[in-house]
């Protein structure tokens, strides 16, 4: 099928960008979306033009590297990662807009590539359990009720792709932050640092310039892993508790 793509081209962080149209004459419905971009890049290279820079790595939906805004929706019209979107979702003659994640805290590096270093810094601010190597007790000495383990796992499936931020009108990273708070906060191992974790991570989240959450829910709708919105309620509850204990303490 024939597809036209309008791609955001921007030489570097300082340059001004613009949408540039390209036409692809032979796109197979079985191609993945990124394979369609590979074909475009082969075409551009042979013409002596600069290929479109975009991030991807595992191309099986788990590493979280890829992610572009497709026709205004992060990762496109299906609830999945960009690499797992296939061209069978589109039809002959379609025009597709492709843009980088749109968020002030994710500055563009080039074309569709953005800097998501803020996510690592939020994790540094408390998104862990302090368990130095060698200090662990026998694994089955820490039983975890299956329901808690399953809920913790569900939150831990976050791949840090950043679609939640790109989808949020406030540019908030609350879903990302809340997923980690939920994962670690539901486990017995995560209890000792539960207060310091939520205080540190939320402070860093705000310092990175991410917006606040106003319960719109675009984040969870765009999330390829289906991280539920109630993780944010859990974050708020933990934050309130931690703040009150901090005040009293």
């Amino acid at each position: 099928m024939k597809i036209t793509v309008n791609v955001w081209r921007q030489q570097d962080a300082e340059s001004k960008g613009s949408m540039v149209p390209y036409v692809l004459d032979e796109v197979s419905e079985h191609m993945s979306f990124l394979e369609m971009l590979d074909v475009l890049n082969e075409q551009l290279t042979l013409e002596g033009n600069d290929p479109v820079a975009f991030d991807s790595d595992c191309r099986e939906g788990i590493c979280g590297t890829c992610g572009v805004v497709i026709n205004g929706i992060p990762h496109g019209p299906e609830v999945t990662t960009t690499c797992q979107l296939h061209m069978r979702t589109f039809k002959d003659g379609d025009v597709i807009d492709i843009e980088p994640w749109r968020a002030g805290s994710f500055p563009v590096i080039k074309d569709l590539v953005v800097d998501r270093g803020a996510f690592d810094r939020i994790i540094q601010a408390g998104g862990y359990i302090s368990a130095p190597t060698g200090s662990a007790v026998e694994a089955n000495n820490i039983p975890v009720p299956k329901a808690d383990a399953d809920h913790a796992f569900e939150a831990a499936t976050c791949i840090s792709c950043g679609a939640c931020v790109a989808a949020c009108p406030n540019g908030s990273a609350m879903l990302f932050t809340a997923a980690k708070i939920t994962h670690l906060g539901l486990l017995p191992q995560g209890q000792p640092e539960r207060d310091s974790r939520v205080l540190g991570m939320v402070e860093q989240h705000d310092a990175e310039g991410f917006g606040g959450c106003t319960n719109i829910g675009e984040c969870t709708a765009a999330c390829p892993k289906g991280i539920p919105l109630d993780t944010i309620s859990r974050l708020n509850r933990d934050l309130l508790g931690a703040l009150s204990r901090q005040t009293i303490g």
Binding site: A139, K146, A152
Partner: peptide, 22 residues
Amino acid sequence: VNIIDQCVAQGVPFAREYGGLL
């Protein structure tokens, strides 16, 4: 055997049975 202990201590959410064990 130490690896499993280490990972559980870090909060790796391994699959568990209804009794709460791995």
